[in-house]
Amino acid sequence: MKNWVKILGICLLLYVHTAGLLAEVPRLNILNETVRALYFHVPMWFGMTFLFTMSVYYAVRYLRNPSPELDRKVLEYANVGTVFGILGIFTGMLWANYTWGSPWHGDPKQNGAAIALLVYLAYFVLRGSLDNQEQRARLSAVYNIFAFAAMIPLIFVIPRMTSSMHPGSGGNPGFNAYELDYRMRMVFYPAVAGWILIGLWITSLRIRLKTVEETIIDIEDEK
């Protein structure tokens, strides 16, 4: 990963965390000041989706052309994606508690996100219960692709079919207003980009660390 990408990610996050609190936001009922949580909560989901997609991409590449390096990438992208997802779900619960009245509100998007997390937790369980390294990599890649594909209708199709409390679906005029607000976009899009970049950075770091670890084990074995 190039250094300027990391610096860009840092700058974006610094900008987002200042502007996200200081900049003017639309005045909306119910949400009031908590509308700012959009800058910090939603990017977690974007980051999670992005990292999981990367994980699936590397899983496909692994199946076409197996190598332990690609398997490491699949695992680490899933790992960091899960961290983002867990942060997203907790921030979402806190926010929902104040605006919708209860931490778990049965919202389709919330349920979809929880299931996405379940898929990857099951993925880790699967990895844990296979001993042979090559077999573990192959079977978990297959499950990764299969489960991700089964999840897509759940996350992207069903929330659009039913009424959701999230903006962009169902009848929530007060919530839909900020969808088109340019002032919020100025902070929101940098926030998404910044968190994705930071997620990529952490992932690349973890991959490098794993690579070092495994070369050390190889050297020890040779001795």
């Binding site: 379940l118 079977l139 299969f146 089964a150 999840m151």
Partner: peptide
């Protein structure tokens, strides 16, 4: 997939749940 692993029956339930939920 589960047949290849050690504790297949538990794994079967864990793995299948997120997939069939759609």
């Amino acid at each position: 997939i589960a047949a290849k692993a050690n504790n297949s029956h538990i794994l079967m339930a864990v793995l299948s749940f997120p997939v069939v939920i759609a």
